[in-house]
């Protein structure tokens, strides 16, 4: 089976230490299932079932081949692979434009990521505070910013406060991702084994010391995969800057795509831009999964259940 780390539903049941149910078999043994390994959903195929599965497999492959051939035919038929359509990518100016756009995307991402992490830490500290008013205010902020579409916040800052596109984009992304990260931090701190906190207090540590020296390091370690997944969301959402004419990657692509001199190479631009965008996000997602796998085998994590990189949490707006 290809199921590497069956994601647990965000607010669903907690993964128990020993996986039970279909998960055991779906996960295969040692992560890498033997060929033809049993699943709880179907028997080990006999000769006839194997033949049938082969037929299904061939049919699927054939259908895919037909689909791809159709797309390819459509692309060649409309002359998307013509030399003139791709020539612009060899121009230095075009390359600089695209690289500049990519640079702006990464700049917005870096700023939003750093600020969101900081805001998340502050809001999480607020939600965990012993002072009721602080807790209320932070809860209110977190709930509001999580409930609003990011785009509404970005547009509000951009239109109503009349700032430049970059600050508007970064503000929107920071507010939204910061609130989501606050919840991630908070649940991380709360999932640290009680004994850790009690032991720290028993040693005579103060509230801040317990938080800074005992709880947060363990929580951050356990929550790293989820935090990185949330950063993937931030990276994906930087493309919203396109809608407020921030000169990011998609914007650069559009400039080339609508250029008459380059015979409007829209499809080539989409192909190039999506490949790079998806590649970047996949790289970051893969990193999150790698961290999650590494952390799960780490003895230092005994006190906290390491959250797998959750499927739900990479959806902008989904509650982790």
């Amino acid at each position: 089976m290809t199921t590497r780390s069956p994601a647990t539903p965000p607010s669903g049941p907690k993964p128990s230490g020993k996986p039970s149910g279909l998960a055991t078999l779906l996960r295969g043994r040692g992560g890498q299932p033997a060929p033809g390994a049993a699943s709880a959903l179907y028997d080990i195929p006999g000769p006839r079932a194997r033949a049938r599965h082969l037929v299904y497999g061939l049919l699927t492959t054939a259908a895919l081949a037909v689909l791809l051939a159709g797309v390819f035919y459509l692309l060649t038929d409309t002359g998307q692979f013509a030399h003139v359509k791709w020539r612009p990518f060899a121009y230095e100016g075009v390359q600089e434009l695209l690289l500049g756009g990519l640079g702006n995307t990464l700049k917005a991402f870096a700023m939003a990521a750093v600020l969101a992490l900081a805001l998340g830490a502050v809001l999480a500290a607020g939600r965990l505070s012993d002072h009721r008013p602080v807790r209320w205010v932070s809860t209110l902020l977190v709930e509001f910013f999580r409930a609003m579409p990011v785009l509404v916040m970005i547009f509000f800052v951009f239109v109503a406060l009349r700032v430049q596109a970059l600050p508007a984009l970064v503000t929107g992304l920071t507010l939204y991702n910061g609130s989501v990260l606050a919840e991630v931090f908070r649940s991380g701190v709360q999932s640290v084994d009680r004994g850790q906190r009690e032991a720290a207090y028993a040693l005579g540590m103060r509230k801040t010391q317990v938080m800074v020296h005992v709880l947060v390091p363990q929580a951050v370690r356990a929550m790293m995969p989820t935090i990185i997944s949330q950063l993937v969301v931030a990276l994906k959402d930087t493309s919203l800057g396109f809608l407020i004419t921030y000169e990011e990657f998609l914007h650069a692509g559009r400039l080339i795509a609508i250029n008459m001199d380059y015979t409007m190479p829209f499809i080539p631009v989409v192909i190039v831009v999506s490949a790079i965008y998806i590649g970047l996000c996949m790289l970051l997602s893969w990193f999150a999964n790698w961290v999650a796998r590494r952390e799960r085998g780490n003895l230092k994590n005994e006190a906290v259940a390491v959250a797998p990189a959750q499927a739900g949490s990479t959806m902008p707006g989904a509650r982790p």
Partner: peptide
Amino acid sequence: EAVRSGINTVPLGQG
């Protein structure tokens, strides 16, 4: 992904 994680929670005996 949500549905797949749900499938994983169904007890083995059911299948």
